[in-house]
Design a binder for these strands. Structure first.
Lengths: 339, 339
DNA sequence: TCCAATCAGTTAATCGATTAACCAGAACAT
DNA sequence: ATGTTCTGGTTAATCGATTAACTGATTGGA
């Protein structure tokens, strides 16, 4: 005999009450209408039977599924994604929500389909995550579904969003260098037109200008933000007559190239050259020799915040969309020394 | 005015039919009962209104939610996890399913809760994934929910499962060495008691024994499968009088240590020493100099297979559980040369 | 011509909860 | 004595689909 799982009606019958009473007793709703002993009887019956509410039925009635759609443009490829998902997952679970994941593989036409698939399932809200900090338009398919953007901002500020405080992080690592007495700080970056590049570059420019230095003298760009690009650009900066005493790298991968270039030129890090970077990638920054000082991308925290914000919006759909800058903590390691 | 999304009843009214007819027309059920023109009229009305079925209501009636629970013991930390999820995601989506993710952070007491949370949501089946190949007991909370194990096997074979064909992969990389004329093949491995270690080690033993060599002469173990361990063990093997001409590493991280040891001893890879490994980790194997020949862990393929198997079991719950060995393709690179 | 089968639908029950509306009895105030 | 207010529930409607059972015309075969 296949015993199907107990329904609320079974619990009610076992406790000798109506399903309405059972529902209210278990959910604590209905105010004072349920007596203490009745409540206890229902609870005991539920425990006895191993009752688990059918959230599909509940969802149909209440229009709340306690599921959040997570739309990512590439779940797998970057190690960052995992942390973002994890932050979102943890915050969701704490509030009794689960994540319904969907990956668009970066294909924009997929995004509309993904959103529709989630909406059919009556998710309570949507998290839209991008792998890199960027500015996007909220897809119109979203309609009135509450949404929070993760690692990207909406062009018109119509949706809540959380992005890393790139400016703060940049100022942070530059402050490390300044504290060690560095002035001539080079910057190696990518030519790719991404938000992160723009902010880090502008902030660094500002910093140098404040010292009366000409940033353009100390800037080098590579086509791509990879090791190779870091190597090439560092070579250019470090073979100049008045080479910088420190380099701020766009990211850790480029920093790897800078390390190699310094090595080949017989420059010792941090004694002859200090290096700071961005991203604080797990398998890179702490593993380099010497370990690299880097501003961390707060993916876990952003994931968390996004869910918390989404839950806030579920409570109050008319609240103003919030744009949050998540601080990028500085991981201080061994790649910075006094001039 | 807030316009709520159209219901099936709205479509039916617009097409001038009953909801039963509308349902059958849209789903193609009910055999010949629906005339071609009626069907067309209903379809047109649905398209016109932008009708999207409410899958919560449907799920309540049909007891099928088209959602698969994915229980992972650590979604984020390993880069492998992403590929596994992706494989599962892609196969699921192709079949109209979505993944409901839940992370237990490796805590076994969490697992029961996770399964219960998924069952409350009436998922159609569960994927249980572990980050490392291991043998586990299927949690009793699973009950009669269809389940497929990912990267682990059930101790009693009661559930379908898919794991990497470690033996095949090991034979594969060893064959690379054999083809280059290597006989004295050392093995550096970890002392951690994991399934992968056991199989790779046993297979290597077998291979050497077939050549009449004594494996124990050529084996070195480290406490952990990290770079450090690879370095230490390689140092031991390579400073012997009759050092091996090739080394098979337990994984890529240990191979990094082997590379460093060889470098320090003035041995050039692959000319003085050939190296093969396992895992084919994205950020390691292809990036080493020379690039490392390694047997790949087929996480994407396993994720896919697991979903396909789960869907098969949904169709036929009484089918025998299948234990699948997923081949580990060999990534041939530049770390092997003729003796 | 008449009964059976086929066609093309409709009606109504159902999935398992939540919740608005109602109700009987006890306590209380006037 | 009688209306009012609590207490502690119950009844029945509802969420939005699917589907078993039924029905009223046609068509077809003998």
């Amino acid at each position: 005999m296949v015993t199907r799982p107990p329904r609320l009606a079974d619990v009610a019958k076992a406790a000798g009450v109506s399903t309405a009473t059972a529902s209210m007793a278990l959910n604590g709703t209905g105010g004072t209408r349920i007596g203490a002993d009745t409540r206890a009887r229902v609870r005991a019956a539920a425990a006895e039977l191993g009752y688990r509410p059918n959230t599909v039925a509940r969802g149909l009635r209440t229009r709340r599924t306690h599921m959040i759609g997570f739309v990512g443009d590439d779940v797998a490829t970057t190690p960052f994604a995992g942390q973002m998902i994890r932050g979102a997952h943890d915050a969701a679970r704490k509030a009794g929500f689960l994540l319904l994941m969907i990956d668009t593989t970066g294909d924009p036409s997929e995004t509309g389909e993904a959103i529709a698939a989630l909406q059919e399932r009556q998710i309570d809200g949507i998290l839209m995550a991008t792998m890199y900090h960027q500015v996007i338009d909220v897809p119109e398919e979203i309609g009135s579904t509450p949404v929070v953007l993760l690692d990207s901002r909406s062009a018109d500020g119509s949706a809540s969003s959380v992005v890393p405080d790139e400016r703060g992080g940049t100022l942070g690592v530059l402050a490390e260098l300044a504290a060690a007495g560095h002035r001539r700080i080079g910057h190696v970056t990518t030519a790719e037109d991404v938000e992160a590049r723009r902010i880090r570059l502008d902030t660094w420019r500002e910093h140098l200008t404040a010292y009366g230095l000409d940033p353009d003298e100390l800037l080098a760009e590579a086509p791509e933000a990879m090791t190779r690009g870091g190597y090439d650009t560092a070579m250019r900066l470090l073979t100049r007559l008045d080479r910088p005493t420190a380099i701020f790298c766009f990211n850790d991968r480029m920093a790897m190239g800078v390390y190699r270039a310094a090595d080949e030129l017989g420059l010792s890090i941090p004694d002859d050259l200090s290096v700071v970077s961005y991203d604080d990638q797990e398998l890179i920054a702490p593993e380099l020799a010497p370990a690299l000082t880097s501003a961390a991308l707060p993916h876990y925290a952003m994931g968390r915040w996004a869910v918390e914000e989404l839950l806030r919006r579920l409570d109050d759909p008319d609240a103003e969309p919030a744009g949050h800058l998540m601080p990028c903590p500085i991981s201080r390691r061994d790649s910075v020394a006094p001039v």
